[in-house]
């Protein structure tokens, strides 16, 4: 049974006729062609599908789309502003915190959620927050460093 719902994704309003129990991930990827969020496991175990819903890191593969109707959704595609990368995106490049890059969008979205809630996380806090993400290439240490570096950049940018 299809329903009309409204999604606010990266500041853009979309009216969609969808089955309300479809996953947010499949709607983003197949209906809106926003493929930055990835499928990795379908059970919320790997974090590759992470997007922000009202600022909170959310596993889009296990989130029925009707639950997020009308709420503000941010995907990796909406993170850079006017072509300027978010400090965490910059930090990922500077630290070289990726190999194949498939987990990267989810890692960055969770990292952004963490930094928004806790601008100066300790290493233990980063590990606890990010532990639901899998990087099979094993770049965990670099991702921790990238989050720390972004925290530093954001601190310096504050007046």
């Amino acid at each position: 049974m299809r329903e009309v719902i409204e999604l606010y994704v990266n500041g853009v309003r979309h009216r969609l006729e969808v089955e309300p129990n479809r996953s947010l991930l499949s709607v983003l990827r197949e209906d809106l062609d926003l493929t930055g969020a990835k499928y990795g496991c379908g059970e919320g175990q790997c974090g590759a599908c992470t997007v922000l819903v009202a600022g909170r890191a959310t596993r889009s593969c296990t989130t029925p789309v009707h639950l997020v109707a009308g709420r503000s959704i941010l995907t990796i595609e909406g993170l850079a502003r006017d072509g300027r990368l978010h400090p965490l995106q910059e930090a990922f490049l500077e630290v070289g915190a990726l190999q194949c890059g498939y987990c990267t969008p989810g890692m960055i979205m969770s990292g952004v959620a963490l930094l928004n809630a806790n601008p100066d996380p300790s290493e233990a806090e980063i590990i606890r927050f990010m532990n639901g993400h899998i990087c099979r290439c094993g770049t965990y240490g670099r991702i921790v460093r990238a989050i720390q570096r972004a925290a530093q950049k954001m601190k310096e940018a504050r007046p």
Partner: peptide, 29 residues
């Protein structure tokens, strides 16, 4: 030298299209 990853920007912005991200006109799943 430690040259950074070529086209790294496309990976941190989600622009890079892996096979699983491709969509052709009229494509079925």
């Amino acid at each position: 030298t430690s040259a950074p990853k070529v086209n790294g920007r496309a990976f941190v912005t989600g622009e890079h299209r892996y096979t699983s991200d491709l969509k052709l006109p009229g494509m079925l799943y």
